[in-house]
Every structure is written in C-alpha cells, then in structure tokens.
C-alpha cells in the first residue's frame, strides 16, 4: 500500500499531460463497450424489436398468417378509429382526465409545499412528510381494493357522509361524472405529497438573507411569500408543468383499470384500457396496435416538445 502510494506521487505529473490517444486507451474503450452489452441486448430485444412490430398497425393482422402474409390495409385502422364516435370519445376521456390530473397535480403539491414551508417545528414537518409520501409507494391494486371497499354504497365514506349531512349514499364508482371526480381526487391524494418534494427542495434553496432584508424593510410574511417565495418557485414550477404536458395522453392505466366497470365506460374508458380490451382480450391486434401507435406518436411529439420547452424556459436538462 505504502509503496504504491509513493509510486503514484512520482507518476502523476508526467501522466496528467499525456494525450489519451494510445493503444491502451482503445482497449479500455472496448471494456466500456463490453459493460454496456447486457443493457444494449435487452433494450434491443424488449424495446426496439416491438417498435418493428408496429407494422401490424397497417395490416389486417392474422396470427396464423404472420407479418409477411397478412394483408396490408394502409391507414384503414386509423380512419376507423377517428370515424367511430365511441372511439373518439375514448380519446376525449383520456384528454379530459389527464388534463384535470395535470392541473390538480400541479396546484396541490405547490400549495402543500408552501404551507409545509411555514411549519417551524422540524418534528411536525417530518411526521407530516412521512404520512403524505406513503400512498405514492402503494400500488393501484392495493389502493383500488381499498377504494372499492370504502366508496361502496355502504362503505366508510357514504356512512360518514350520511352521518354528517344526512345525504343518501352516492354511487361514486357507478356514475360517470362521479367516477372522473374520484379518479382525479384519488390520484391527487396518492401523489401530492411525493410531488411536493421537488418544490420543497426549491424552497430550501432560497437564500435566507432575502427574507432578512425584507424583514428589515417591514414586509410581513404574506408580502414575503408573494415577492420572494413564489418567484423563487417559478422555474421549478415551469419544469414540472411542462414535463407534465408530455403525459396528456397518459390518464393512468393502473388506476382506471382497477377502478372502472361497465357502468362508467362511456366517461371512464381511456386509450390504454381500450387498447388492452380490444387487443389482448378481443385479439384484434391490428386495430389495437394502430390505436397504441397513435398514442405513442402523440406522446413522443409532446415529450420532445415539453423537454425543449423546459430547456428553453428554465434551462432544465435531464442528463
């Protein structure tokens, strides 16, 4: 150990200036390639090969005929999708539910972070955080099971509403409008705490001397919030908001699938659940792939646009 340390000290000065273009270096790069190999192979198989499978979207695909022999139908599936009112309704449902989630999912964590930031007792703050982050880690199977139980006509929620306000049981998961409401509220409930983490990080990065200066100038806390805290949160809010735009066709498959039923299909069915039913359950591979492709393309455009926008507006990059 001691000797190698000494040899380091001697070797360092000459080594640092040397250009990296040597044969040893070329070999070292091959080692780096080798380390990437498992990830590359798995990605090729499970991510890139299915992209090739998208040709099915332009075929009247029959499993027994395969890709090569199935009949080509061009854009027929897409025309069918956009000319059938029920299917267009599915796209609308997706957009409406996703948009409501995006807006509520931005306001709730923002407000929560602001309120939590006013808490001065760190013990209380930590306890609140522990409890509100928890639902994020539970799956929609678990939470769906709990909600089905609690929101049933004789469940805990209806009992409480009946006892407090004397109203008749509400059919939360059997009425389309209530269903959308439940989907958005339960999504906010599950994610607002976790979503607040980035806002809290931005809040803790505010320079305390700004508040001290405002204090000297006689600003009260509300004025400080308006002119220091909120402006400091604008960049991260723009980032979170624009990146959320990439999700405008992601209304949350796991959640909807575990909560919906035949009664709320007209207002609760979204693209992802539709693709599952038509494709995997009914076996119409061609048509459902086309619907999926439509979603993938729109999603791609939106995500790329969102990242560019986030980069332009707030100088945000992921890597």
């Amino acid at each position: 150990m001691q000797t190698s340390q000494t040899s380091n000290v001697v070797a360092v000065p000459g080594k640092q200036k040397k250009p990296l273009k040597t044969r040893g270096n070329w070999k070292r790069m091959l080692a780096l390639d080798a380390m990437l190999l498992p990830a590359v192979i798995l990605t090729l198989i499970f991510a890139y090969i299915p992209m090739g499978g998208l040709v099915v979207a332009f075929q009247d695909f029959k499993p027994w005929l395969g890709f090569a022999k199935s009949e080509w139908v061009g854009l027929e599936h897409f025309q069918y999708l956009f000319s059938t009112p029920e299917y267009v309704q599915v796209i609308w449902n997706t957009l409406i539910i996703a948009a409501m989630k995006i807006i509520a999912g931005l306001i709730a964590p923002f407000t929560f972070a602001l309120l939590l930031n006013e808490v001065r007792s760190s013990g209380f703050k930590r306890s609140v955080q522990t409890m509100v982050y928890l639902p994020h880690f539970l799956s929609w199977v678990i939470l769906g099971g709990i909600l089905l139980d609690m929101l049933s006509s004789d469940g805990l929620v209806n009992q409480a509403l009946g006892a407090l306000f004397g109203i008749d049981p509400i059919f939360f998961l059997g009425d389309g409008n209530w269903f959308r409401f439940v989907v958005v509220v339960s999504d906010v409930w599950k994610e607002f705490g976790f979503g607040a983490i980035v806002f809290l990080a931005a809040l803790s990065g505010i320079n305390p001397s700004l508040y001290e200066a405002a204090e000297v100038d006689g600003a009260n806390r509300w004025q400080q919030t308006l002119s220091i805290t909120i402006p400091a949160m604008i960049p991260i809010t723009i980032v979170v908001g624009t990146l959320a735009l990439g999700n405008v066709l992601n209304a949350g498959f796991d959640q909807i699938f575990n909560l919906y039923n035949a009664l709320v299909m007209d207002k609760g069915d979204i693209i992802d659940t539709f693709v599952y039913r038509v494709g995997i359950v009914d076996g119409k591979f061609g048509f459902s792939t086309a619907v999926g492709l439509f979603k993938s393309i729109v999603g791609f455009v939106l995500i790329v646009a969102a990242y560019r926008l986030a980069y332009k507006l707030a100088n945000y990059r992921i890597f």
């Binding site: 990605t43 890139y48 299915p50 992209m51 090739g52 499978g53 494709g279 993938s296 995500i303 790329v304």
Partner: peptide, 22 residues
C-alpha cells in the same frame, strides 16, 4: 450514441400489443 440509444426508448415505444406478440 449509447445514451441516445437508451433515452430514445423513454420517448417512444412499440406499445402494448407488439410487446405482447414478442
């Protein structure tokens, strides 16, 4: 090159049905 190879899969995917067929 490698980074884009991986990141592209976050931006675009074949969707459920081609994956299922694979």
């Amino acid at each position: 090159l490698y980074t884009w190879f991986f990141v592209f899969t976050m931006l675009f995917n074949g969707g459920l049905i081609p994956f299922y067929m694979l």
